[in-house]
Design a protein around this nucleic acid. Structure first.
Lengths: 239, 239
DNA sequence: TATTCCCTCCCCAGAAATAGCGATGCGTGG
DNA sequence: CCACGCATCGCTATTTCTGGGGAGGGAATA
């Protein structure tokens, strides 16, 4: 693989980088190397906010944020349910909003072809690493096939860097739930009400409440729904 | 990178594999190539169950399962909080149970040195990819530094394969939610109660209730908590 | 040995969610 | 043009959840 050396060098540089400029240098170097329109890492935050670095035009980033495109971007929605990298063509562009979004994106300099790698970290962290460009289907297929592995690695390294920079204001967020609390949250998440959960766990409803309360406290949640949502998005329970 | 070709070949073979034997062939080939004691992929289920494939002795796998070592294994616990691959030396072996566990593992043929890569997929899926061997610290450091990138890629491909085999796919492709329903679900998921959601959306609480109800109906959910949980795990909302 | 979880059980009052029944307008697509 | 989904508003009664109190035993850890 001829490209290997260049990528290796950039990744090595990235590993050393300790400033945002270093990261930007890396991402621009990679963009040049791969000859694509854009190369972007962005962290999808739990609040729906997001940030990242990459080569998108600033007005597009602002527009995206302002219009809350996160909610309709098929790339985000599609990647959220996938593990493997995905070509944009294979996403669901059937809705009108999605097509309008795509048309607008292209106007803002986003390529018509794209390839995005979903990345997940602890506590439900979720990020995307995207390359996109303007070319025909065949060229793009060849590109992604040739570079898939490098891109996966690059995505991994960018996310690692992002996690390093993230001050991780999580003093009690990392608190895990007790087995009983996990049981309770899980059963609530699959639609049981308190009485059913208590019966399933063979405990009194009062005891169950203690678990729900303590889980809620640990998760910093305002109510049961919030607690279950947090437990889910942090990967503490699976439904 | 001299090792590249071999790894590429095995990964290509793995991509084609459609049986468990194919996967085992790949993992043994890689074990030989890297000259390590063990190379193991295992899927960690939140319920405590797990499965995987690799080169651990069967009696060790059985013992691990039977003793529920998942709960005390510092590798699992440590990796759960991390994104980047981790050398076993850097984990927390301070507890008595952890040291006893390690001593027993070595007796069962697990190397004294290890390197584990955490991997995460959609819906909180979590897996580990581990190589371990018996050698001194310096040799092991050199090994992990030289092979980190290959190992990350290998881990990625094994997980991709595991996800393909997993019948976990949700066939019930639920209809999507309307924008207002998404708003409602999202705000509920971040802890707002009905009154707060209604105020945030500048609608009456009665109207809000209609959204919650219709979202609940679409999602086939028994209650609000269930609906939010489903919306989250189907990636319809991002929190 | 002391401390700190974890699990279990109990009461009560007030707040919130659910299950029914409505209604009106406004777009989009067949 | 008409149906259908969407957004918006209303009422009542019942069930469920939440937020305060408590208490005791056991296991693990420091």
């Amino acid at each position: 693989m001829a490209t290997n050396t260049v990528v290796e060098e950039v990744l090595a540089a990235l590993e050393q980088a300790d400033t945002l400029e270093g990261i930007n240098d890396a991402i621009y170097a990679l963009k040049e190397h791969f000859s694509v329109d854009n190369m972007v890492y962005h962290w999808v935050d739990s609040a729906g906010a997001q940030y990242g670095y990459g080569t998108y035009r600033l007005d597009w980033a602002a527009r995206y944020q302002e219009q809350n495109y996160l909610r309709i971007d098929p790339v985000v929605i599609g990647c959220y349910q996938r593990f493997h990298p995905v070509d944009w063509k294979r996403l669901d562009w059937s809705s009108k909003a999605a097509r309008a979004f795509q048309a607008e994106a292209i106007k803002y300099g986003v390529g018509n072809q794209g390839y995005t790698i979903p990345i997940r970290g602890p506590n439900g962290q979720f990020a995307l690493f995207t390359v996109n460009s303007t070319c025909d289907d065949e060229t793009w297929s060849r590109f992604t096939e040739d570079n898939r592995r490098e891109l996966i690695l690059i995505a991994h390294y960018f996310n690692q860097k992002a996690l390093e920079f993230e001050p991780n204001k999580k003093p009690e967020q990392s608190q895990s739930l007790s087995p009983r609390e996990i049981d309770a949250m899980t059963l609530l998440a699959i639609g049981y009400n308190r009485a059913q959960v208590a019966e399933t766990l063979s405990i009194s409803e009062h005891t169950l409440r203690v678990y729900i309360e303590s889980a809620r406290f640990k998760l910093g949640a305002n109510n049961t729904t919030h607690a279950v949502a947090r437990a889910l998005s942090r990967g503490l329970i699976v439904v």
